[in-house]
Computed example of a mutant assay.
Amino acid sequence: MTQLLNGIAPLPHLGVIRVDGADAASFLQGQLTQDFALLQDNQARLAAYLSPKGRMLASFIGLRRSSTELLLVCSSDLLPATLKRLSMFVLRAKVQLTDASADFQCWGLAGDALLSIAGSALPAWSKAEFGSASVVHLYPAENQPRALLVAPADAPAPTGPALAPGLWDWSEVRSGVATLTAPVVDAFVPQMLNYESIGGVNFKKGCYPGQEVVARSQFRGTLKRRTYLAHAPSALAVGAEVFAPEDAEQPVGTVVQAAAAPGGGVDALVALQIAAASGALHVGGVALTLLPLPYALLDDI
Protein backbone atom coordinates (compact mmCIF):
# COMPACT_ATOMS: atom_id res chain seq x y z
CA MET A 1 0.00 0.00 0.00
CA THR A 2 2.87 2.38 0.68
CA GLN A 3 3.57 3.06 -3.00
CA LEU A 4 0.02 4.43 -3.28
CA LEU A 5 0.82 7.25 -0.88
CA ASN A 6 3.01 9.29 -3.17
CA GLY A 7 1.82 12.55 -4.63
CA ILE A 8 0.09 15.88 -4.08
CA ALA A 9 -3.60 16.26 -3.26
CA PRO A 10 -5.67 19.46 -3.09
CA LEU A 11 -7.47 19.87 0.24
CA PRO A 12 -10.51 22.08 -0.42
CA HIS A 13 -12.25 20.74 2.69
CA LEU A 14 -9.86 22.74 4.87
CA GLY A 15 -10.41 26.34 5.86
CA VAL A 16 -8.04 28.96 7.29
CA ILE A 17 -8.59 31.44 10.11
CA ARG A 18 -6.14 34.34 10.13
CA VAL A 19 -5.19 35.65 13.59
CA ASP A 20 -3.46 38.99 13.08
CA GLY A 21 -2.14 41.59 15.48
CA ALA A 22 0.38 42.27 18.20
CA ASP A 23 -1.52 40.03 20.65
CA ALA A 24 -2.16 37.15 18.22
CA ALA A 25 0.02 34.59 20.02
CA SER A 26 -1.07 35.60 23.53
CA PHE A 27 -4.72 35.49 22.49
CA LEU A 28 -4.40 31.92 21.18
CA GLN A 29 -2.41 31.02 24.28
CA GLY A 30 -5.49 31.77 26.37
CA GLN A 31 -7.95 29.92 24.12
CA LEU A 32 -6.39 26.69 22.82
CA THR A 33 -4.88 23.53 24.30
CA GLN A 34 -1.38 24.12 22.96
CA ASP A 35 1.37 26.62 23.76
CA PHE A 36 1.43 29.42 21.19
CA ALA A 37 3.50 31.83 23.30
CA LEU A 38 6.59 29.69 22.68
CA LEU A 39 5.79 28.87 19.05
CA GLN A 40 8.95 29.10 16.95
CA ASP A 41 9.19 29.79 13.22
CA ASN A 42 10.23 26.17 12.59
CA GLN A 43 7.27 24.74 14.50
CA ALA A 44 3.56 24.22 14.06
CA ARG A 45 0.98 23.21 16.63
CA LEU A 46 -1.79 20.65 16.76
CA ALA A 47 -4.39 22.20 19.05
CA ALA A 48 -8.01 21.97 20.11
CA TYR A 49 -10.59 24.58 21.01
CA LEU A 50 -12.79 23.44 23.89
CA SER A 51 -16.07 24.25 25.54
CA PRO A 52 -15.97 25.13 29.25
CA LYS A 53 -16.84 21.46 29.86
CA GLY A 54 -13.64 20.40 28.08
CA ARG A 55 -15.32 19.08 24.91
CA MET A 56 -13.68 19.71 21.55
CA LEU A 57 -15.39 22.32 19.38
CA ALA A 58 -12.65 22.37 16.73
CA SER A 59 -9.16 21.07 16.03
CA PHE A 60 -6.44 23.09 14.33
CA ILE A 61 -3.01 22.98 12.83
CA GLY A 62 -1.60 26.35 13.85
CA LEU A 63 1.41 28.02 12.23
CA ARG A 64 3.12 31.38 12.26
CA ARG A 65 3.36 33.39 9.04
CA SER A 66 4.99 36.49 10.56
CA SER A 67 5.66 38.06 13.94
CA THR A 68 2.05 39.23 14.13
CA GLU A 69 0.18 36.76 11.90
CA LEU A 70 -0.78 33.18 12.72
CA LEU A 71 -2.98 30.81 10.75
CA LEU A 72 -5.34 28.15 12.09
CA VAL A 73 -6.16 25.41 9.58
CA CYS A 74 -9.32 23.48 10.36
CA SER A 75 -12.20 21.62 8.75
CA SER A 76 -14.15 24.19 6.75
CA ASP A 77 -17.49 22.94 8.07
CA LEU A 78 -16.48 24.13 11.54
CA LEU A 79 -14.90 27.43 10.54
CA PRO A 80 -17.87 29.85 10.66
CA ALA A 81 -19.08 28.82 14.11
CA THR A 82 -15.55 28.57 15.48
CA LEU A 83 -14.56 31.98 14.13
CA LYS A 84 -17.68 33.55 15.60
CA ARG A 85 -17.11 31.99 19.01
CA LEU A 86 -13.41 32.83 19.17
CA SER A 87 -14.11 36.42 18.12
CA MET A 88 -16.38 36.86 21.13
CA PHE A 89 -13.34 36.65 23.40
CA VAL A 90 -11.07 39.14 21.66
CA LEU A 91 -12.30 41.99 23.94
CA ARG A 92 -9.44 44.50 24.23
CA ALA A 93 -6.73 42.32 22.76
CA LYS A 94 -4.85 43.76 19.79
CA VAL A 95 -5.88 41.00 17.43
CA GLN A 96 -8.25 40.50 14.51
CA LEU A 97 -9.71 37.17 13.45
CA THR A 98 -10.90 36.67 9.87
CA ASP A 99 -11.85 33.87 7.51
CA ALA A 100 -8.82 33.76 5.21
CA SER A 101 -9.78 30.59 3.35
CA ALA A 102 -9.97 32.45 0.04
CA ASP A 103 -6.48 33.85 0.60
CA PHE A 104 -4.73 30.50 0.96
CA GLN A 105 -4.53 27.12 -0.72
CA CYS A 106 -3.92 23.87 1.16
CA TRP A 107 -2.30 20.76 -0.27
CA GLY A 108 -1.43 17.34 1.11
CA LEU A 109 2.06 16.03 0.29
CA ALA A 110 2.98 12.36 0.62
CA GLY A 111 5.92 10.07 -0.08
CA ASP A 112 8.55 11.06 -2.62
CA ALA A 113 6.48 14.08 -3.66
CA LEU A 114 7.02 15.51 -0.18
CA LEU A 115 10.73 14.74 -0.28
CA SER A 116 11.13 16.44 -3.65
CA ILE A 117 9.59 19.64 -2.27
CA ALA A 118 10.87 19.67 1.31
CA GLY A 119 14.13 17.75 0.84
CA SER A 120 13.59 15.49 3.84
CA ALA A 121 10.97 14.23 6.23
CA LEU A 122 10.99 15.93 9.64
CA PRO A 123 9.24 15.07 12.91
CA ALA A 124 5.54 15.84 13.10
CA TRP A 125 4.65 19.49 13.71
CA SER A 126 7.95 20.74 12.30
CA LYS A 127 7.55 23.64 9.84
CA ALA A 128 9.71 24.99 7.04
CA GLU A 129 9.26 27.83 4.55
CA PHE A 130 9.74 27.36 0.83
CA GLY A 131 9.25 30.68 -0.89
CA SER A 132 5.78 31.89 0.10
CA ALA A 133 4.64 28.39 1.12
CA SER A 134 4.72 26.85 4.59
CA VAL A 135 5.20 23.09 4.88
CA VAL A 136 4.02 21.48 8.11
CA HIS A 137 5.20 17.92 8.60
CA LEU A 138 2.48 15.56 9.81
CA TYR A 139 2.37 12.09 11.32
CA PRO A 140 3.29 9.50 8.68
CA ALA A 141 0.89 6.89 7.33
CA GLU A 142 1.88 3.41 6.21
CA ASN A 143 5.51 4.46 6.84
CA GLN A 144 5.20 7.22 4.24
CA PRO A 145 6.08 10.81 5.19
CA ARG A 146 3.27 13.36 4.90
CA ALA A 147 2.93 17.12 5.16
CA LEU A 148 0.46 19.97 4.84
CA LEU A 149 1.44 22.75 2.44
CA VAL A 150 -0.18 26.16 2.99
CA ALA A 151 0.49 28.86 0.41
CA PRO A 152 -1.09 32.13 -0.76
CA ALA A 153 -3.94 31.59 -3.17
CA ASP A 154 -2.02 33.25 -6.01
CA ALA A 155 1.14 31.17 -5.53
CA PRO A 156 1.97 28.47 -8.10
CA ALA A 157 0.54 25.07 -7.24
CA PRO A 158 3.14 22.57 -6.00
CA THR A 159 4.46 20.33 -8.75
CA GLY A 160 4.55 16.56 -8.60
CA PRO A 161 2.40 13.49 -9.24
CA ALA A 162 -1.27 13.80 -8.36
CA LEU A 163 -2.56 11.94 -5.34
CA ALA A 164 -6.26 11.08 -5.34
CA PRO A 165 -8.07 12.98 -2.56
CA GLY A 166 -9.56 9.70 -1.36
CA LEU A 167 -6.09 8.29 -0.78
CA TRP A 168 -5.13 11.38 1.18
CA ASP A 169 -8.25 10.96 3.31
CA TRP A 170 -7.26 7.34 3.91
CA SER A 171 -3.75 8.42 4.92
CA GLU A 172 -5.26 10.81 7.44
CA VAL A 173 -7.12 7.94 9.07
CA ARG A 174 -4.11 5.64 8.96
CA SER A 175 -1.95 8.30 10.61
CA GLY A 176 -4.15 8.01 13.70
CA VAL A 177 -4.51 11.80 14.02
CA ALA A 178 -8.18 12.77 13.99
CA THR A 179 -9.43 16.04 12.52
CA LEU A 180 -12.65 17.18 14.13
CA THR A 181 -15.64 17.73 11.81
CA ALA A 182 -19.24 18.84 12.35
CA PRO A 183 -20.83 15.45 13.12
CA VAL A 184 -18.66 14.97 16.21
CA VAL A 185 -18.46 18.49 17.63
CA ASP A 186 -18.75 18.76 21.42
CA ALA A 187 -18.39 15.01 21.88
CA PHE A 188 -14.84 14.41 23.12
CA VAL A 189 -12.28 15.70 25.55
CA PRO A 190 -8.89 15.84 23.75
CA GLN A 191 -7.54 12.67 25.35
CA MET A 192 -10.43 10.67 23.91
CA LEU A 193 -8.85 11.43 20.51
CA ASN A 194 -5.35 10.69 21.88
CA TYR A 195 -4.37 14.34 21.53
CA GLU A 196 -2.11 14.30 24.58
CA SER A 197 -0.07 11.53 22.89
CA ILE A 198 0.33 13.24 19.50
CA GLY A 199 1.29 16.77 20.50
CA GLY A 200 -2.16 18.33 20.82
CA VAL A 201 -2.18 19.27 24.52
CA ASN A 202 0.34 21.15 26.65
CA PHE A 203 -0.15 20.51 30.35
CA LYS A 204 2.35 23.16 31.47
CA LYS A 205 0.81 26.24 29.84
CA GLY A 206 -1.63 28.69 31.39
CA CYS A 207 -5.39 28.58 31.57
CA TYR A 208 -7.78 28.08 28.66
CA PRO A 209 -11.45 27.08 28.42
CA GLY A 210 -11.94 23.50 29.58
CA GLN A 211 -8.46 23.17 31.07
CA GLU A 212 -9.65 21.86 34.43
CA VAL A 213 -11.57 19.03 32.78
CA VAL A 214 -8.57 18.10 30.61
CA ALA A 215 -6.22 18.11 33.61
CA ARG A 216 -8.61 16.05 35.72
CA SER A 217 -8.96 13.47 32.94
CA GLN A 218 -5.19 13.22 32.68
CA PHE A 219 -4.03 13.19 36.26
CA ARG A 220 -6.92 11.66 38.19
CA GLY A 221 -7.39 8.60 36.02
CA THR A 222 -10.91 9.51 34.93
CA LEU A 223 -10.37 8.89 31.20
CA LYS A 224 -12.69 6.11 30.01
CA ARG A 225 -12.34 6.40 26.22
CA ARG A 226 -9.54 6.27 23.68
CA THR A 227 -9.37 6.44 19.89
CA TYR A 228 -8.53 3.24 18.02
CA LEU A 229 -7.85 2.42 14.40
CA ALA A 230 -10.43 0.05 12.92
CA HIS A 231 -11.46 -1.64 9.67
CA ALA A 232 -14.95 -2.42 8.41
CA PRO A 233 -16.10 -4.24 5.27
CA SER A 234 -18.49 -1.46 4.24
CA ALA A 235 -19.09 2.27 4.63
CA LEU A 236 -19.21 3.97 8.02
CA ALA A 237 -20.71 7.39 8.74
CA VAL A 238 -18.82 9.85 10.91
CA GLY A 239 -20.77 10.21 14.13
CA ALA A 240 -22.27 6.71 13.91
CA GLU A 241 -22.48 4.84 17.19
CA VAL A 242 -20.46 1.72 17.94
CA PHE A 243 -22.05 -1.15 19.86
CA ALA A 244 -20.98 -4.33 21.59
CA PRO A 245 -23.12 -7.45 20.92
CA GLU A 246 -24.23 -7.81 24.52
CA ASP A 247 -26.00 -4.41 24.60
CA ALA A 248 -27.92 -3.25 21.53
CA GLU A 249 -29.09 -0.02 23.14
CA GLN A 250 -26.11 1.48 24.94
CA PRO A 251 -23.30 2.53 22.54
CA VAL A 252 -19.69 1.98 23.55
CA GLY A 253 -18.13 4.34 21.02
CA THR A 254 -18.38 6.72 18.08
CA VAL A 255 -16.93 6.80 14.56
CA VAL A 256 -14.69 9.88 14.46
CA GLN A 257 -13.27 9.70 10.93
CA ALA A 258 -13.53 7.21 8.07
CA ALA A 259 -12.18 6.70 4.55
CA ALA A 260 -12.31 4.01 1.89
CA ALA A 261 -9.33 1.66 2.07
CA PRO A 262 -7.44 0.91 -1.18
CA GLY A 263 -7.68 -2.82 -0.52
CA GLY A 264 -11.44 -2.71 0.03
CA GLY A 265 -13.70 -1.79 2.87
CA VAL A 266 -13.27 1.22 5.10
CA ASP A 267 -10.67 2.24 7.67
CA ALA A 268 -11.79 4.43 10.54
CA LEU A 269 -10.81 6.12 13.74
CA VAL A 270 -13.27 5.22 16.49
CA ALA A 271 -13.43 6.61 20.01
CA LEU A 272 -14.27 3.68 22.29
CA GLN A 273 -14.75 2.87 25.90
CA ILE A 274 -11.42 1.36 26.87
CA ALA A 275 -13.18 -1.55 28.57
CA ALA A 276 -14.97 -2.44 25.31
CA ALA A 277 -11.92 -2.37 23.05
CA SER A 278 -11.04 -6.01 23.63
CA GLY A 279 -14.41 -7.41 22.55
CA ALA A 280 -16.54 -7.72 19.43
CA LEU A 281 -17.83 -4.45 18.01
CA HIS A 282 -20.18 -3.33 15.27
CA VAL A 283 -21.74 -0.24 13.71
CA GLY A 284 -25.30 -0.90 12.62
CA GLY A 285 -24.51 -4.58 12.21
CA VAL A 286 -21.25 -3.92 10.31
CA ALA A 287 -18.43 -5.64 12.18
CA LEU A 288 -15.37 -3.65 13.25
CA THR A 289 -11.89 -5.10 13.49
CA LEU A 290 -9.45 -3.08 15.59
CA LEU A 291 -5.97 -2.53 14.20
CA PRO A 292 -2.75 -1.39 15.91
CA LEU A 293 -2.31 2.34 16.30
CA PRO A 294 0.73 3.72 14.46
CA TYR A 295 2.02 5.43 17.62
CA ALA A 296 2.32 4.70 21.31
CA LEU A 297 -0.07 6.22 23.82
CA LEU A 298 1.45 8.18 26.66
CA ASP A 299 0.58 6.83 30.07
CA ASP A 300 2.24 9.73 31.87
CA ILE A 301 3.15 13.28 30.91
Rank of each mutant, 00 (worst) to 15 (best):
residue 1 M to L: 12
residue 2 T to S: 14
residue 12 P to V: 03
residue 16 V to Q: 05
residue 17 I to N: 04
residue 19 V to Q: 01
residue 19 V to H: 01
residue 20 D to S: 15
residue 22 A to L: 14
residue 26 S to R: 15
residue 29 Q to M: 06
residue 30 G to A: 06
residue 33 T to L: 08
residue 37 A to F: 13
residue 39 L to C: 07
residue 41 D to R: 11
residue 45 R to P: 02
residue 47 A to L: 07
residue 53 K to W: 11
residue 55 R to C: 01
residue 60 F to C: 10
residue 60 F to V: 06
residue 71 L to Y: 03
residue 76 S to H: 12
residue 79 L to Y: 01
residue 80 P to H: 02
residue 81 A to W: 00
residue 88 M to K: 11
residue 90 V to T: 15
residue 94 K to H: 12
residue 95 V to N: 01
residue 101 S to L: 03
residue 101 S to K: 01
residue 103 D to Q: 11
residue 111 G to F: 05
residue 114 L to F: 04
residue 115 L to F: 08
residue 115 L to V: 14
residue 116 S to A: 14
residue 118 A to Q: 01
residue 120 S to E: 15
residue 125 W to Q: 15
residue 125 W to I: 09
residue 127 K to L: 15
residue 147 A to P: 07
residue 155 A to F: 05
residue 160 G to E: 08
residue 164 A to N: 14
residue 168 W to E: 05
residue 174 R to H: 04
residue 179 T to C: 10
residue 180 L to M: 08
residue 183 P to F: 00
residue 184 V to F: 00
residue 186 D to K: 09
residue 190 P to V: 05
residue 194 N to T: 03
residue 218 Q to Y: 06
residue 224 K to D: 11
residue 224 K to H: 12
residue 227 T to P: 00
residue 227 T to R: 01
residue 231 H to Y: 12
residue 234 S to F: 07
residue 236 L to D: 06
residue 241 E to F: 10
residue 247 D to T: 09
residue 249 E to W: 09
residue 251 P to C: 11
residue 252 V to W: 06
residue 264 G to W: 02
residue 264 G to K: 03
residue 274 I to D: 11
residue 278 S to M: 11
residue 292 P to V: 05
residue 294 P to W: 07
residue 298 L to R: 14
residue 301 I to Q: 13
